[in-house]
Nucleic acid binder design. Structure first.
Lengths: 346, 346
DNA sequence: TTGTACGCGTTATCAA
DNA sequence: TTGATAACGCGTACAA
């Protein structure tokens, strides 16, 4: 028994199947395409033989000739993945139902997106869903290659490049109205990183709206969007302040930290002593221990829409860019008083 | 101006670069490989011209000839992604530092893993990290193709196939010892789905150990591993039972639901009236509102080890399978009394 | 309906 | 050090 007897050096190719079935390689190829002219008998026989040989088509070789990789790149930051794990699942699921694979490229933060550009360009991606900012020079490299991009929750405007995002400004404004109408006047704001566009928009719209309503000063502090900093930054902030009666947090993680600070560090009751409003509606916000009133981002609808926008670019190559903004939805729980203080009977 | 003047039909290839640089295509190829014999001047000049043309190598074409896709498949269930988002990030990060891409294939649950087998086989993956069970017949299809698999937190044993998992049995046993030594005797157990191996192992080891210690009956109920069912299943379970003094939950989500059931439905104090122990150490477990005592899975270390195991198979083709079990780590917080009831002075 | 021949864009081999 | 040429495995004209 020689070495060549038991060699299984490489997976079977369409040539191997062709030889075993006594047909041409192109016939084998046709047997695995849905819309090809092939006799039912041949198709069945060849497929059976292929199965016996353990044959699968090589997707890479196919991509080379069809010039379609059937792969969609998804760029996501660590924070996005942690805060919205369902987004990853939903994107993957939506892409698979469109016969696309998900090449997930994770980055530490928006600041490090540059590190994956070259790698993404080496694959003839069908498209890129980018949950990060990107420089125009990098965007144009994809555009040159005809790789469409959809930005997800990032306010990036570029030619032929779509985006979908929550309407953060409207949402921040709504939070301001909510708290003002409930009679709150000593209001503070816990926002995210200075570099995080979404946080800035939410917070500045919130503050601006309050200013319109006559609340001139809204003490504000920046954080890293984490529970821990929500807890500590809030505690520090209120130390030298008249006690606030409401707080808006630019995301739910912060809000949970603020709530725990109130209850376990400051001894304040929620919502009797202070109203807390968050942003996102993550799973934790609905726990009985928190019951956080917050503004939900329609992440899952946005994910589906992102896939739809992306794949429609394959046919509609030159349609003008679409920048879709979806309204957040106020989820009323018990962490904020929503009726006016002056009318407790309501 | 004819149509051909402004056509940018396809990305530049190495032939285009070669023509522009006045060299052979193979020379261009060499300029983009680190370990090739090429004069520094040529390399620099060609690379510059390539950059001007916006050239990137086509990874698919390269894979075809090198028979290495540099892609690693990661199979993960919706539950895994939701419960352990950091796992996704860590795997992606570890793979990228090994110059590999992550093809993430999401599935609804272990039961639907069959739906991605064919699709995974079509790519000449460098390997597969599988956070799901898999039938032996499917495993062998990958083995035939020389695609190594590492099972992650699944107790799958198969030839040449590595696995890494938390030692769930040891952990369940440890939870039992912990509660028993604290003096608890009326103990209940909230486990996960009947089909979830990890849950069964944790719970049955827990119950078995208590039996050894003389606690014969441990009322147990199955759930879907969710917060909601932790809350409702526990409430239902204890309704017709003498009040338990301790509860072990097969994951943290359940434990949080149980804690909220105790506090907000049953009016029990934690840990004075009942001790609660969870499993996983998800982020929520550490919140001040919960302070859940739990057993941490070393997910991140496991992720790194999984990548290491997988890539080592590329060279060590025929080394015997390695089934690594990592010990969980007890994280003591305040949701469980750990000293004996009889010795409150401790 | 099937076979022949070519090309997708790269790396690898061999000769110069 | 470089160039010519042959793969890699498939899809697709075109001819039969």
């Amino acid at each position: 028994m020689s070495a060549s007897d038991n060699e299984i050096p490489y997976p079977a190719t369409s040539y191997d199947v062709a030889k075993a079935a006594g047909v041409a390689q192109s016939t084998v190829s046709r047997c695995f395409q849905d819309d090809s002219n092939i006799s039912p008998e041949t198709r069945e026989r060849v497929r059976r033989i292929a199965a016996e040989l353990g044959y699968s088509r090589n997707a890479l070789a196919r991509s080379l000739i069809t010039r379609k990789s059937n792969m969609v790149g998804v760029v996501a930051t660590r924070f996005t993945i942690r805060n919205n794990p369902e987004l990853v699942y939903t994107l993957g699921d939506a892409l698979r139902s469109e016969k696309r694979r998900m090449l997930l490229m994770v980055i530490e933060s928006d600041a490090t997106v540059g590190s994956i550009i070259d790698e993404a360009l080496e694959y003839p991606l069908d498209g890129l869903i980018c949950c990060s900012n990107m420089k125009e020079t990098d965007i144009s490299r994809f555009r040159t290659r005809r790789v469409p991009i959809v930005f997800f929750n990032r306010d990036v405007k570029s030619a032929l490049t779509d985006s979908i995002a929550t309407d953060h400004a409207e949402a921040g404004q709504r939070a301001a109205d909510l708290l003002f109408e409930a009679g709150h006047r000593r209001i503070v704001c816990i926002k995210g990183p200075e570099k995080a566009q979404v946080s800035l928009v939410r917070a500045s719209a919130f503050v601006a709206r309050l200013a319109e309503l006559g609340v001139a000063h809204v003490p504000t502090v920046s954080t890293d969007f984490s529970y821990d900093q929500g807890l500590t930054a809030f505690t520090d902030l209120v130390e030298n302040l008249p006690r606030p009666d409401a707080v808006f947090c630019a995301n739910d993680q912060l809000a949970l930290g603020v709530m725990d600070a109130c209850r376990y560090k400051l001894g304040w009751r929620i919502p009797e002593d202070i109203s807390v409003v968050g942003f996102d509606d993550i799973a934790e916000a609905g726990r009985l221990s928190y019951q956080l009133t917050t503004i939900r981002q329609p992440i899952l609808e946005m994910a589906l829409k992102a896939v739809e926008l992306l794949l429609s670019r394959a046919t509609n190559t030159d349609v003008e860019e679409r920048n879709i903004r979806m309204a957040g939805r106020l989820i009323v729980r018990t962490s904020a008083r929503i009726q006016d203080k002056e009318c407790p009977s309501l």
